[in-house]
Design a protein around this nucleic acid. Sequence first.
DNA 1: ATGAAAGCGCTAACAC
DNA 2: GTGTTAGCGCTTTCAT
Lengths: 354, 354
Amino acid sequence: MSQVTSKDIARLAGVSRSTVSLVLNKVPAVKIAAGTREKVLKAARELNYHPNALAQSLKTNRSQIIGLLIPSIANPFFPSIAQGVEDVAVANGYNVFLCNTFRDQVKEENYIRTLVGKQVDGIIVASSVHNPLFLQEAQQRKILIVTFDRRIENNGFDCIHFDNVRGGEMAVDYLFSLGHRNIGFITTSMDSASHIDRLTGYKKAHEKAGIAVNNRYIRNDRYQSKGITAHHYEPEIGRKLAAELLEECPEITAIFAVNDLTALGVLKHSQKGLRIPEDLSVVGFDNISHTEMVTPTLTTIAQPTYQMGRQAAELLIAGIKNGANDIKGPRHLVLFSPELIVRDSGAVSQGTVA
Amino acid sequence: MSQVTSKDIARLAGVSRSTVSLVLNKVPAVKIAAGTREKVLKAARELNYHPNALAQSLKTNRSQIIGLLIPSIANPFFPSIAQGVEDVAVANGYNVFLCNTFRDQVKEENYIRTLVGKQVDGIIVASSVHNPLFLQEAQQRKILIVTFDRRIENNGFDCIHFDNVRGGEMAVDYLFSLGHRNIGFITTSMDSASHIDRLTGYKKAHEKAGIAVNNRYIRNDRYQSKGITAHHYEPEIGRKLAAELLEECPEITAIFAVNDLTALGVLKHSQKGLRIPEDLSVVGFDNISHTEMVTPTLTTIAQPTYQMGRQAAELLIAGIKNGANDIKGPRHLVLFSPELIVRDSGAVSQGTVA
DNA sequence: ATGAAAGCGCTAACAC
DNA sequence: GTGTTAGCGCTTTCAT
C-alpha cells in the first residue's frame, strides 16, 4: 500500500484532480456542486487520503514548519518556552523543529542552513550567542525571524525582550529592603548579555541606595567552563563561588545569583553549617520549577517563560500570515517584565548593620 | 532575492541541471570531469545555493524528518529523552518535530495525521496512553515507528523498554534492607502501565521478603486529575497522599513514590515537623534533576533517559536506512535496567521493628 | 562525461 | 461548476 494521491481519489470519484483539490481545500471563491463535493469527500474517506504536504509546500511556498533554536532542551529554563512555542504553533497548523545549538556557532550555522533548505516559514532563536549574519541570510530568503534578545535597538528582527536589568535591580532592591548591606553577586560567565544586564541591575540598585559597589563581592566562574551543557555544572559553580566568596568576605549576608541553577548551588554550600535564610539570604533568577521544591524554597525573579514562548510564536506566525517577510516593514518588540517571587531563602538580615 | 535553484547554477556554470545534481550529490557511480565539477561547485558557492529539501524529498521519498511524540516537554522527565533523540537525529542528518500530546488521544491522532502528511520518515512515541490503531496506520504508509513501551510481547513496533517492575522491586528491596517493614506506596494514577508495573515490583519485593502486602498502605489520587499537565500537580498529590497515609497508618516508616515529582511532594509534607530520613524514608523514581538539588537529596530509581532517547533514535534511523519499513522483518527491543541511586532521603528504620 | 526528458504530488490560472 | 494545462525544484533513467 503505497501513497494514496489526489489522482486516485479523482479516479474513484470520477472527477478531475483540480476538482479534488478545490473541494479538499475548501477554496472559498469557487462553488462546487454539492453532489460532486460529496463524491470527492467520500472517495477521500474511503481511500483514507492524506495530502502530501511536501508537494503542497513545494507548490505554495509554505511549509507550515517553524524552527526553534535553543541552547539545550535539557536546560530547565527552556522546556516551558518550547511548550509555549509548540502550543501556539500546533494551534495554527504549524510543526516545530527542535534544534539544540549548545551555544555553538558552528552547530547554529548548520542548523540555519538545514532549516533554510527545509523551507521553514520562520525561525525562533532563543540562543543568545549567535551571529546575526546567518540570520540575516535566512531573512533574505524570506524566512521570518524572531529572537529572544536584550537589544532594544532595531536589529532587523522581531524580538521578545525580558528586562534583565530591572530584574537584577528588583532582586537587590529586595535584599536591601530586608536590611542587607553586603550583598554578593555570583555568575557563571560574564560574556552572556543577559548576565551582564543582571549585574547592571545589581549596580543600579546599589546606586539608588547610595551604597558603593564592592568589586570583591562580584564573582564569576574563572574556569569559564562554557558551552556544551552549562546547566549540568552551574550548581557546582554556584557552590564553589559561594564558598570562596563567603570565605574571603565573611561580612556578606546575602547573595544574588545570576540564575536559579547557580543559586541552587549556593543552597548546597549552605549545608556546611550555614543556615538559610538566617545566616545567608539567597535570591535566584528565572523561577525554574526546582525553586519551589527545594528546602528552603528559593526566592527568585520570575521570567514568564511559557508566555514568552507563546508570544514568540504568535509574533512569528502573525508575521508569516501577513507576508511580513516580503515587506521591509516595522519590526515588533514584546517586552516582558520581571516579577519578584518571595519564598523562604530570603529573610531580614541578622548581620551587623553598618 | 528569491529562491536560488539548480537551474540558476546550471546557467551560470554553463551545464545542464542534471549535471548540477550529479555533482552536488556526489553520485558515486557517475564520473564527472574535474573541470565541470569545479565550475558547478564555484557557481553554487557564488550564488549561495541551498537545494530545496522539499523538492528533493518529493522526488526521493525521504524527508529526513522524524517526529517525537511525548506528553509534554515541560514535564521534567522528557527533556533529556528529547535531547538524546535530537542529538542522534542531527548527527544523521535528520530534523525532529517536537509534538506534545498531553496524553490526549485526539491530539495524538491529529499529530500522527500531520506527521504522515508531512511525510516524516519515522516516529518515536514516548506517550504511553496511545491507540496503536493510528500507529499501525502510519506504519502501513511505510513510516517506521519506535515506541517506549512496557510490553515485551511483539506489538509490531520496535521498542525501548524500561524494567519498571524490577525498578519498583529494587526500591522496596532497598527499604527492606534498611529495616523498614511498613512501607507505603503512593501513585498519581493507576491507569498508567508503568505505574502498575512499579506497584507490581512493590508487591514482588514483599513476597520475596515474606511480608504481607497491606492494601491500606497503597494509595492513589482519588481525584484522578489526569491529563493536561500532570507534572504541575504531582507534587501536590504526593503531599496530600502522604499526609493522609501517615495520618491513617502512623506505623509507616517509609514511602515509595511512583515517581520523583510525587516523592518531592512527600518531602514537602515532611516540613510539618517530620524529619527525613530519621522519621520517614522516601524513595522516588526516575532520577529527574530535581532529586539531587532538594534537601535532603532524594534516593531514587534512575532511568537512563538520555540514553534511552538516543537508542530510540538509533533504532529508528537504522531501520529507516535498512528500509526496514518495507520488510516485515523482525522487530527490535532494547531493554534498559533500573539503577538504585542512594541519596539522603533514606535511612535505617527508627520505627518499631516487628 | 553530459544532456534531454519524464515525473514526484500538488495547486492555480485559465478555459469551457 | 469543472476540466485542461502548466509548473513548483528536484532526481534519475536513458540517450548520445
